[in-house]
Structure formats: structure tokens, C-alpha cells
Amino acid sequence: MAHISDTTPVSVGAGSLAHSRGATWRDRIFPFWNLVFLVILAATMIVPFLNVLAVSVSGPLASSRPGIHLWPEAFTFEGFRTVWVNVGLERAFVNSVIVTSIGTTLHVILASLAGYVLIQKDLPGKKLLVAFIIGTMAVPSELIMIPLYVVMKQLNLLNTLAALVISGLVSGFSILLMRNFFAGVPYDLAESARIDGASDFRIFTNIYLPLSKAGVATIALFELVGRWNQFLQVILFINDSSKYTLQVALQTLVTENMSTSGTSMVTPNVRMAGIIIAILPLIAIYPFMQKYFVQGISLGAVKE
């Protein structure tokens, strides 16, 4: 926080005292407009979702009519039933749960292991390792989608859920984040444990992990959200609709002309029900998230 001292020109001189009357008036009017601004802002976020929710529980006919839909008309859960059973979103949902849970678990394990290795003070080759890991961060996955596709093909992983679990198995970002968390654990603790004869792995599981729960939670939540929303990898690697994840099934529902022509009618209530299903799990874990996300960003942004 070296900035504070040199960037605080709080030199409010005598000149401003002359305006102090205006200032009090402004100080009174400001909170009001501020409140109005925030209410409008919140409305731009809430109204769209309210619209989606209202349509999702409206009847197919009512949802197809023009007009403003902020309240359910001909209330029914038919849209949810249609999208879950007839459109088959259920399987896509299950696939997403599988990929997300396995992918996130492995990601957290690998990132913490690597993060732990990187805090060792006397590890030969550490600089090289750090460079190796940071190097991967300069290569955004989108930019290697074509060769990644070729690699998955060579490994016979196309059209498998394994391909989805593997892509993003670990990331430089998460490793550095874990390293930054671990760096906050007193090194002496590890030293004394080592002197007592504890193995590296034991020090990791018994000292570092318990003391870095917040770190683990941060990358787990980051990864969870990222995995749940994973899209490009799925359209890249998956052919068969039985292996689609929720996002791609939803995209087919929302924006594609479905080639399975005989299926029941995809009315707005069906589409919006699909959207609600896709966001519900995220809303469920949301309460835990806000705190960790900020923590993650501020720690992750610490420059190497």
C-alpha cells in the first residue's frame, strides 16, 4: 500500500470552505439520488430474470402471446416437464453434474499439490517449474482449440465425457492462487514437522490443506462455475447428443433449429424453463461464492 502516502492530495484548502453550505445541501440530496440510481440498476438485473421466471411457469399458449410477462399466466410447470422429459434435458443435466464434480475435484487436488510444491524454498529447478507453469497462462485455450481437437482425436477421446473432464484439468491460475494461499501458512510449522520426520505429503495434508481451507474453497468455486458453464469444449469434442452437457443442450434448445423435428413444441415457456434449470445450481451455491471470488481475484492478481 505504498500508494497511500504519495497519492493522497487531501489538500482541501480554504477555498472549499466557502462552498461548505452547498456541500451540506449536496450531502443531503446525494443519498437520495444514489438510492434511486441503485434501485434502477438492480431493476435492470431483476426484471429480465423475473420475466424469464414468469414465462417459465406460464402455459405454452400464454407464453407465446406478445405482451409484457412479469407474472405467470395460466400457471403450470408444464414447461419444466417438457424440457426435462420430452426434450431430454435430464440427461444433459446429469452429464454436467458428472463432468463438473469430477473435473472440479481433480482440479482442486492437482492445483493444490502443485501450489504446495512451489512454496518449497530450497527446491532445485523451482524457477524452471514456475516459468513452465506461468508459460501456460500466456496460451488461452481458445487459441489452441484446433490443435486441441486434433490431440483429443489422436488420444481417442473425442465424444467422451473424459475429454471434457481433461480440458482444464488444472490451470496456472489456480496453481498460483494456491501457492499464494500456502505462502500465508507459517513456514516454521512445516519446518518443525519435517524435523519430526513427517513426509512432504503428510505436511501437505495435515498442515497446509487445513490451514488453507479458504483457498481450496476459492478455486473449487471458481472451477465449479467455470465447469458448469463450459461451452466451447463441449461443442468441440462432443458429437453425440447423449453426451451433451446442459449448456450445449440448452443452446440447441434456445438458438438452434433442432433436427429432431418430431419433438414436442418448443414454446417460450419450455426454453425459459431450461434456462431456470441451468441457473438454479449456481444460485444454490451463490451464498458461499461472493466472498471467495473477491479473495481469489485479489490474491490471483498479485504479480509474479
Partner: peptide, 22 residues
């Protein structure tokens, strides 16, 4: 307000795109 303005960031572009297309 904090909670609400943060929400769209969590959702995928399929969700956000789907909503706004509509």
C-alpha cells in the same frame, strides 16, 4: 444490490444470450 448485480456474471453466455435474444 450487491448480490443482484453480481448474478449475471455467474451465468453462462448460453443463459445470458438465451435470455436477451428473448
Amino acid at each position: 444490490v450487491q448480490t443482484v448485480v453480481y448474478l449475471p456474471h455467474l451465468f453462462s453466455w448460453v443463459v445470458i444470450g438465451g435470455i436477451w435474444i428473448y
